[in-house]
Amino acid sequence: MDKDTLRRLELLNQLSLTEEQKSEMYSFFDRRENDLSELSSIDTENTERMVHVLPILTVVREDKIVQNFDRESLQAGAPETDEGYWCVPRVVE
């Protein structure tokens, strides 16, 4: 993990790390890199991809409309609403 890569990860995750946190991250990623190297050494050429950890498949529902929730209850915990909208800090100039 180098400085530029960590900076890129910060941007992608919308984070701003302190120097102390960055230092922890370097050490964390170095450890994970070793784990990944070990995993990469295993030959999986003829191994079928595991698609899910649970043996449950095809959980689907019929295409039927059920409207169980009202706006007021869903917005009850929102920091700010206005005219039925959730409000967030402005995202365009």
Binding site: D82, G84, Y85, W86, C87, V88, P89, R90
Partner: peptide
């Protein structure tokens, strides 16, 4: 997202 209701805020419709 609706940007023209208020100047300081973006309004969100899900």
């Amino acid at each position: 997202l609706v940007h023209d209701i208020r100047e300081d805020t973006t309004h969100v419709d899900f």
